[in-house]
Amino acid sequence: MKLKMLYSFLKTDIDEIEKELNLAIESDTSLLKDASLHLLQAGGKRIRPVFVLLAAKAGDYDIHVIKNVAVALELIHMASLVHDDVIDDAELRRGRTTIKAQWDNQVAMYTGDYMFARALDYMTIIEKPAAHQILSNAIVELCIGEIAQIEDKYRFDQNLRDYLRRIKRKTALLIAVSCQLGAIAGNTPEKIHTSLYRFGYYVGMAYQITDDILDFTSSEEELGKPAGGDLSQGNITLPVLYALKDPQLNKRIRRVHGDMPRAEMELLIQDIIATDAISKSYDMSQQYLKKALKELDALPQSRAKKSLRDIALFIGKRKY
């Protein structure tokens, strides 16, 4: 089953958000518009807007209000992707050339800054200070997380707490605040929007752990890049942390560096897969999913609640 099928009842509203995203990047400056459109047309799951809409269904759902939060969050996500491609020196994203590859780093920097400002413009239509405090804290944390990821590269003495804090900032926070802000824009009581925050947080953690597992277990064709790419770039993910507990593997992992021959790296990846590192990581992702599902108990029965549950389960089972 495709992810989109799990929230098909929102199709009209998701189309409305897509239209609004196209309007959001309108600019008299043709190059800026072309660059933004280039990324927008590459598509994407639009998972953050979906979480915003589903969470808002727990309160007073008015698409004309809620869409501003949904558009803001997607634009923030897009702005971060444009800058991430400069950071990673990436040539391709979602099968298309990146903005920095199509034009250059400078255009990518200006486009990312422009999108970020457009996002805040949309967000300010929501005049609730709490919504801005939550979002701005998340944005700052997200940046700190990205900086920490660079600081922690090839640092093999890090522990589980370092990893969890990093993926919280990198992935889980923006999903958590998507859920919470949707609920706040829908005027839900605090008990509901904090439950939805926790739901998003747990789902985000499970999502990132699954991503980190798939980096080892998926084929190059499925990933669109060589398997084990995270480790060769020095990113210490959960499977690696478990594998480091094996004394033999520990020595070999600590020798990983950016120019390690591919054959040696492939052998190491196979040996990590052969340990219980993958199954242990999978168990942890399932624990987060269980916690996520439990948070939904606070919500009244509805189609939206069922969709949130189904999306969480989908994330737990996804293969790539």
Partner: peptide
């Protein structure tokens, strides 16, 4: 890149703590 993103995040954070949504919009 990340330093610039971090500083612009701080601008938003400070104004949301005041809170001054109108100035957030003006600066955006």
């Amino acid at each position: 890149v990340l330093a610039g993103d971090y500083y612009s995040g701080l601008y938003y954070q400070i104004l949301s703590q005041i809170p001054d949504v109108k100035l957030i919009r003006r600066i955006a």
